[in-house]
Design a protein around this nucleic acid. Sequence first.
DNA 1: ATTTACTATATTGTATACAAGATTGCTGTT
DNA 2: AACAGCAATCTTGTATACAATATAGTAAAT
Lengths: 213, 213
Amino acid sequence: MGLIESRILADHVYEAIKLMIQDGALKPGAKINKKELESLLGVSQTPINGALSRLAGQRYIEQRKRRGYYVRVYSCKELVDLFAARGAVESMATRLAVETATDAEVEQLTLFFSDVQFPLSDEAYRAYEKTDREFHSALIRYSGNTMIQQMNEEFGYIVRAATKGLIRPPEETIGEHRAIIAAIRERDAKLAAQLMTEHHLRSRNVLVENCQD
Amino acid sequence: MGLIESRILADHVYEAIKLMIQDGALKPGAKINKKELESLLGVSQTPINGALSRLAGQRYIEQRKRRGYYVRVYSCKELVDLFAARGAVESMATRLAVETATDAEVEQLTLFFSDVQFPLSDEAYRAYEKTDREFHSALIRYSGNTMIQQMNEEFGYIVRAATKGLIRPPEETIGEHRAIIAAIRERDAKLAAQLMTEHHLRSRNVLVENCQD
DNA sequence: ATTTACTATATTGTATACAAGATTGCTGTT
DNA sequence: AACAGCAATCTTGTATACAATATAGTAAAT
């Protein structure tokens, strides 16, 4: 199955390193050892360099002259900034989704938080987080905006890493989610987008308060 | 002045190619000839490859297996999508700028369109375009959001290329600009952001109408 | 016991070599 | 003239070599 063969070595190296960064095997600030990667992945310097340059272009890692590549460290301020930007983009996605999604898709969205009952068990709590993520990415999908989808894929993992353990309790957010869904159902794009912006800005404030630097 | 020496060759190659793309010397869809670049820039394959991989990471160019690198072509739909995303981000920048800019900075913003008098001469027309760009980038600067600034730098040239010759007439936009400035002066972040969103969405529609594909 | 100076080692940035795969151009055939 | 087939050429992806620089380690001096 020539599928694997249809990609060059640097692509595989790229994916491998990206995964190591995303799942924490390579922590922020860590130095990337090319020699190690060579023997780990069984390729020469050349594809490693290609992959590292590509990752540097996407700012997953950064290159310090004559000192190697390091996993990019985001300052707390940068994370907050990223969060604001992402909120803006997702708010636009909401607006576009309301304008262009089919009725069936809108129905799908309304189902997301329909059966949440308080108080939540530990399991239901984790399920809520997952539903939250799925709701947001469904909106982005239904927006039909490929550029926003791309941005979301590129920055999503950073935001997820940043907000780990810093999310607001479901008791607080469920109302906002339902208000957004209600606006979507009413096909009120402007209102839905505005509610989404405020939803994100409130979450952003939780991040701000946890910044020490 | 070791400043130039403080950067590696691939950095220079990167800048050189990026400039060629941005000023149109390398047109969308054009194939990038490594050999030519080698002799043009007087370096070997290696730094060229590094620069090309970095540019591929940023999606300035794309790599087709065993067929080389090509300057990325944006479809009309993608440009429209990008425009929407950028509008969202700039709207957020506006909101943040209103919340955090100093009074002096707000005064600076109010000056931007203060002396526009119709009808415009050819020269004044071009000046208006420039003022427009400066106004938008000042807002982004005053937002203090480094991530948004970064996105703007990365995508700005594409948007500019896309909208070349497709901007709405000053007669149509001056009112929107002034309304935004008025909201900023009133320190009404929400209103300013909303006006900015609509300003961009209206411009986006001009793009949509000029899409053939 | 720190700090300093020097040496050995590892890593980086760069160039180059080369096989496998694409492209171009030529030839002869219909 | 249009086209298929093939040969020559060019380009890519990969590996490797090597000098310059950074890092780590060791010995000497305070």
